[in-house]
């Protein structure tokens, strides 16, 4: 009573029963709000493990062999597919000449003799015309059932000279690390309603929770107003 006559308002020292309950509701609401938003993201951060894509794991075994020339035909196909999958990720990567050179060189290397010339011709043509026929490359890479990969091939070719092939390149490592390693955990790998769980949580459940917090708070305060008979005098 003393405090209310001095007209002191302090969030942490509520002086009337109504304010006490009101502030309790606010603190509970804000705590849920804070933990649900920032707590979950922090959990996501704590749980995460940098996880390379499967194709990159395989590639890392193959890369040294590409460099010293001991890679088998299958390994070259796998490497070319890795390059292709990387090129398909973003338009910006299609401007990475080292990457395109690695792809074209590897494909050149693994093709049979007469197809090599066809590849060089296709690479020259692809620079100006994406409608170039690359069916033989698709077949050689075993991607004829994968339209997403096939679509990238004409854009992945670059002019190479047969005496200067570079099937792998140290400069590619940072690019591959950047695009092939992802922060994953059971939170991202569990699928719920088709979503990766963390995505479902952040994009849908969290927003729903926000609406619920607001809804419950509104009912709570309306209840308090009734309880303390403040509706007429106060609202």
């Amino acid at each position: 009573m003393e405090e209310s006559r001095s007209y002191e308002v302090n969030f942490f020292k509520p002086s009337t029963p109504f304010l006490k309950e009101n502030i309790r509701a606010i603190i509970i609401g804000l705590t849920i709000w804070f933990l649900a938003t920032y707590g979950f993201q922090t959990l996501l951060k704590i749980m995460e493990t940098p996880t390379p894509e499967a194709t990159y794991v395989a590639y890392q075994q193959i890369a040294p062999k590409l460099a010293d020339g001991s890679a088998t035909a299958e390994e070259k196909v796998a490497a070319a597919n890795t390059y292709l999958a990387l090129l398909g990720k973003s338009g910006a990567l299609l401007k990475n000449d080292a990457l395109k050179t690695a792809f074209t060189s590897t494909v050149y290397d693994l093709l049979p003799g007469d197809a090599k010339e066809t590849l060089l011709a296709a690479a020259t043509k692809a620079a100006s015309d994406s409608k170039v026929d690359v069916g033989f490359i698709n077949t050689a890479l075993g991607i004829t059932e994968n339209p997403a990969m096939m679509a990238v091939v004409p854009y992945a070719l670059i002019k190479v000279s047969p005496d200067k092939l570079a099937m792998t390149d140290e400069a590619l490592k940072p690019v591959m690390d950047k695009f092939f390693i992802h922060n994953q955990s059971f939170l991202t790998d569990t699928i719920v309603f088709g979503f990766p769980f963390h995505y479902l949580y952040t994009a849908l459940l969290l927003l729903t929770l926000f609406v619920l917090i607001c809804l419950v708070y509104c009912f709570k305060i309306d209840g308090l107003m009734k309880k303390y008979e403040m509706e007429k005098s106060f609202e």
Partner: peptide, 15 residues
């Protein structure tokens, strides 16, 4: 269809 692109959904992806 896309090439496999976890960077689209994984948190704070370096990509």
């Amino acid at each position: 269809q896309t090439v496999p692109s976890p960077e689209f959904a994984m948190p704070w992806d370096t990509a």
